[in-house]
Design a protein around this nucleic acid. Structure first.
Lengths: 330, 330
DNA sequence: CGAACGTTTGCCATCGATGGCAAAAACACT
DNA sequence: AGTGTTTTTGCCATCGATGGCAAACGTTCG
C-alpha cells in the first residue's frame, strides 16, 4: 500500500531537476549516461509509474482509441472488438468500447463522451442515419464495416456486394438455378449490398430472380427460421439457399436439418461456431471481424500520423470456405 | 473546425470568474440563479464541452472502469463485456477493455496500464496463477467469474459446483445412471468446480463414476468432438452427457447428431446460438455473461463508495433451461 | 588564459478544471 | 447608519508531466 510516487519524488531522490527526470522518462538523448542510469535506478527503487492522465492533459491527446459498435455481444462485433483491442494493445494504446444499441441518439452521446476523453482516434460502426455531425469531430476517424451517410471519411470493411456475388455465383456454378435469399432488411446498408450482389449474380448468369424466393425481412434467427420453413412448405422449391447474415444462418440451418432437407445447398455469409461440425459442414463466406478490426486499426494509425490523407475505402478480402453444404448439386 | 472552447472562455464571455463558471458546471448551489443562467447560456452558445482529462487529473481518478478478460471474442466473455459496458454507461462511466490471452505476464501488463490511467475501478477475470500482487492495486477491485489465488477480494460469478450438481441431478432424476462428463482441464478453476459438482451429484445419489466416461481434457470444441466420438465408439455406453462448457457443447452436440444418437440425453453448461433450434432442442444451464456482468458492475459501484466493506462472494443464480435434450429418458 | 562551442541541466509556464479561503456583495436587524 | 449574518464571487494554488528557453558545465582551440 506504499504511497504512489511521482516524478518529483524521483527527481528529488536522484538529486536532479524535474525536467531531467522527465527527459530520462522520455528517452531524451540530451542526458548524460551517468545521470540517466542514476535516475533510472531511482525509478526502479521507488517503483515509479508515470501518470497517464497528466501526460494526456499536457499533450492534449490520450493514448486510447475509442471503438463504437452497435452491439458488443454480436459475434461479428465481438470478434472485431477483440481484434481491435489486440492490435491497439500491441501499439501501446488502450481501447474504450461503447455500444450504440442501434440508437442514433445514444450514438451521438457515446461519441461525444469519447471525444471529451481526447481519444487519439475513433473507430465507428455507424448506425443508419445522417452522420454529417461526425465531420466536426476533432479526432481522426475511421468508419468500420459500413459507410456513413453524409460523411466523407475512411471506411474499412468488406465488399459486401462482391462477396455476396461470389457466394451466389458459387452456387450457380454448382448447377443451381432456384436460389433462395434470406437476409435482413434492406435498410441496413450492408444487407442492401448483399442483396444487390445476389441479384447481380443472378442477372449476370442469366437467371431469373423469383421474388417468392427472396426473404429480405429477417432481422433475427427466429424470423429466418420462419422464412425457411415457409420456403420449404410451399411454392417453388429452392435447390439452394444463400443466407446473408450469420444471424439468419443460425435460423435457416437448423430448419434444414429438422426437415431432413440437407440436400438443399447452402452458403452463409459469416462463419459461426458449429459450422464445420455439422453434416454436411456448412460452406460460408468467411466474413471475419478479426481481419476487419486489424485493418481498421492499421488505417487509423495511418490517419493519425498523416491527417491530410484523402479518405479511402479499404476492402478486406473475404474468402469462401468450402465445407460441403455449398458444393451440393441440385 | 471551430476551436474547442475551454472553461476560461466561458467565464470570460459571461463576465464571471473561472471559479464561478466551474461552480455552474458542477451544479454548486452557491451561485445566484441569474448568474447561473447567464453562464449556462454562454456554455450553450460556445458549445462548451468539459475536458475529462483535466478533471481526472485534478480529481485523481478517472470516470472509467477497467475490464480485464481472458478473451473478448469468447461468447461468454463478449456477453459479459456487453453487459458491463451497458451498465457502466448508464452510470456515466466509460469502459476500458483489455484481454489477457490467458497469459499471466500480459495480465500484469494490462492491469498496470489500467492503473496508470487511474481507473475508478477494476473488474478482472483472473488467469490461473498467483494474484497476490493485485492486492497492491490502488483501485477498487472486483474479481469476476472466478476467484484468484492468494487474493482476498470481492468475487462475482456463478456457483459452478452447485450449477453442475443441479444439472447432473436433473439427468439422474430422469433415470440416467451412466452419465458422461466432457469438459476442460481441471487446472481451470471453474472447470474443476464443475467436475466436482458432477462427482458430488453422482455420489449424492449413490452412483458410481466410471472414469472412462469422464473426459476432463477438452479445451476446444474439436477436442470435445473427439472425446464424444470415442465415447460412442467403444466401451461403456453413456445414456446421457453433461458438457461442462459451451465450447465443449459445440463439439459434442454435432457429433450426437452426426451419429444419429439424439437419443442420448444432453445437458450443457452455457447457452449457445443454435441451442433452441436443434431437434431435440438443447437443455442448458443458463450461464449468462450478462447477469454476471451486471452484478459485477453493481458490486464494484458499492465497493467504490464503501471501500471498507468486507470482501464478499456474490453468486449469480443460474437456471436450467429445459428444452428437451435433458429430459430424454434412457 | 579566455573565447567559442557543444553538452547537460534547471527554472518557469503550461495543459484545463477544481478546492480552500477570503473578499465583496446583499440582506437582516437593532 | 452600523453591525452581524448569509449569500455570492474571485484569487491563487494544485493535480503530474512536458516544452521553451537560459544557465551552467565541460571541452577544445586560438
Amino acid at each position: 500500500m506504499g504511497e504512489r510516487s511521482i516524478l518529483r519524488d524521483v527527481a528529488q531522490a536522484a538529486g536532479v531537476s524535474l525536467r531531467t527526470a522527465s527527459r530520462v522518462l522520455n528517452d531524451d538523448p540530451r542526458v548524460a549516461a551517468a545521470t540517466r542510469e542514476r535516475v533510472q535506478g531511482v525509478m526502479k527503487d521507488l517503483r515509479y509509474v508515470p501518470d497517464l492522465m497528466a501526460r494526456s492533459l499536457r499533450g492534449g491527446t490520450d493514448a486510447t482509441i475509442g471503438l463504437v459498435v452497435e452491439s458488443i455481444a454480436d459475434p461479428f462485433f465481438s470478434e472485431l472488438v477483440a481484434a481491435v483491442e489486440s492490435a491497439s494493445s500491441d501499439a501501446g494504446k488502450s481501447v474504450l468500447v461503447a455500444s450504440t444499441r442501434a440508437d442514433a441518439g445514444r450514438e451521438l452521446r457515446v461519441v461525444t463522451e469519447l471525444l471529451r476523453r481526447r481519444v487519439s482516434g475513433l473507430l465507428v460502426v455507424p448506425t443508419a442515419s445522417d452522420h454529417s455531425w461526425l465531420a466536426q469531430a476533432a479526432a481522426p476517424l475511421v468508419l468500420v464495416d459500413r459507410a456513413a451517410e453524409g460523411l466523407d471519411a475512411d471506411m474499412v470493411g468488406t465488399d459486401d456486394q462482391r462477396a455476396a456475388f461470389d457466394a451466389v455465383a458459387h452456387l450457380i456454378a454448382h448447377g443451381h438455378r432456384d436460389i433462395a435469399y434470406v437476409g435482413d432488411y434492406s435498410r441496413v446498408s450492408t444487407s442492401a449490398a448483399r442483396l444487390a450482389g445476389y441479384r447481380e449474380a443472378m442477372a449476370h448468369y442469366g437467371l431469373l430472380v423469383h421474388d417468392e424466393l427472396v426473404h429480405a425481412d429477417c432481422p433475427t434467427a427466429r424470423a429466418a427460421s420462419a422464412a425457411m420453413s415457409s420456403l420449404l412448405a410451399e411454392g417453388r422449391q429452392p435447390t439452394a439457399v444463400f443466407s446473408a447474415a450469420t444471424r439468419c444462418s443460425l435460423g435457416v440451418v437448423p430448419v434444414l436439418h429438422e426437415h431432413r432437407r440437407t440436400d438443399v445447398a447452402f452458403v452463409g455469409f459469416g462463419d459461426f461456431a458449429m459450422a464445420d461440425a455439422l453434416v454436411p459442414a456448412v460452406t460460408v463466406v468467411d466474413h471475419s471481424g478479426a481481419a476487419v478490426g486489424r485493418a481498421a486499426v492499421a488505417r487509423l494509425a495511418r490517419r493519425i500520423s498523416e491527417p491530410a490523407l484523402m479518405p479511402e475505402i479499404v476492402h478486406v478480402p473475404v474468402r469462401l470456405v468450402e465445407r460441403g453444404s455449398g458444393e451440393l448439386r441440385p
